[in-house]
Write a protein that binds this DNA or RNA. Structure first.
Ligand SMILES: [Mn+2]
Ligand SMILES: [Mn+2]
Ligand SMILES: [Zn+2]
Ligand SMILES: [Zn+2]
Lengths: 132, 132
DNA sequence: TCCATTAATGCAACAAATTTGTATTTGCAA
DNA sequence: TTGCAAATACAAATTTGTTGCATTAATGGA
């Protein structure tokens, strides 16, 4: 799917910043941070614009935000683009890459009276490349 | 277990700040943020000192850091104090409380070549009190 | 194609959470 | 009791993200 179709299918205007973000993310195959995306785009856009673009595309279901740690936030392409549903993430403690995993998430047993809205899981370890 | 023993068992010096943090946490039964702990201790210590104390006690296994979201970090008493092992956490989106859950965590299937060091899960929802 | 409308962007300022440097104080072992 | 390493306070810096506002650009319809 091309960046133009992705944006149009979600009723978002086609802008250079949004298309740049999507292109970088589709190429990398990993979840990326604001600063990583900005450096790939050679500083063509303001930081504010990236943050507003992330928010817009997250609200539209194109991206999802992954909080690896405070001070480490990444964005990944969502179901609408990749076909994957809610899933755990893997953080490599060596190369700091973040990958979306294919599994689905299972809620743990909760105390009585508690209800669940959302589940998030981060697996920390070492990726294939760094283990080699 | 008293705060003195906890610190001594982990080869940490007994200081007013560390004992204050532990006392507040043992009383509350929930995971607390730096500002919550600071307000319980009536501003007796500098914020820097709290952050350095958290780090020291986390490194020693007395506390664990819970990242609910970027911009929302809490600390909980660890296994060494409570007897609980690695566990998921629950965040109430209504009252913003964070609870350590009793279940244990199961790692999802990883791609070949990947290895796991640590697992973190946050369940977001509504707690018993807020559901009532 | 041209235009009006409305959304997107850039820029400056702001803000909160956390970290770092350093001089001073304190815990504790000898 | 004393010496020394560790802990603390305070100021300043960093990191990450947000907000207000004037300017620019995308898009649908004339
Ligand atoms: Mn993902
Ligand atoms: Mn916990
Ligand atoms: Zn790696
Ligand atoms: Zn609640």
């Amino acid at each position: 799917m091309d960046t133009f179709s992705i944006l149009r299918n979600h009723n978002l205007r086609r802008t250079a910043c949004r298309e740049g973000i999507l292109k970088v993310m589709m190429t990398s195959g990993k979840a990326l941070s604001e600063s990583e995306i900005r450096s790939h785009l050679m500083g063509n856009f303001d930081r504010t614009t990236f943050y507003r673009s992330f928010k817009t595309m997250e609200d539209s279901g194109i991206l999802h935000k992954i909080v690896v740690d405070d001070r480490m936030v990444r964005y990944g392409l969502s179901e609408a683009v990749t076909g994957k549903s809610s899933h755990p993430h893997f953080y490599c403690t060596t190369c700091h890459s973040v990958f979306c995993l294919d599994q689905s998430l299972v809620a743990p047993q909760l105390p009585s009276g508690f209800s669940t809205d959302d589940l998030e899981m981060i697996v920390k370890g070492v990726c294939k490349k760094c283990n080699a």
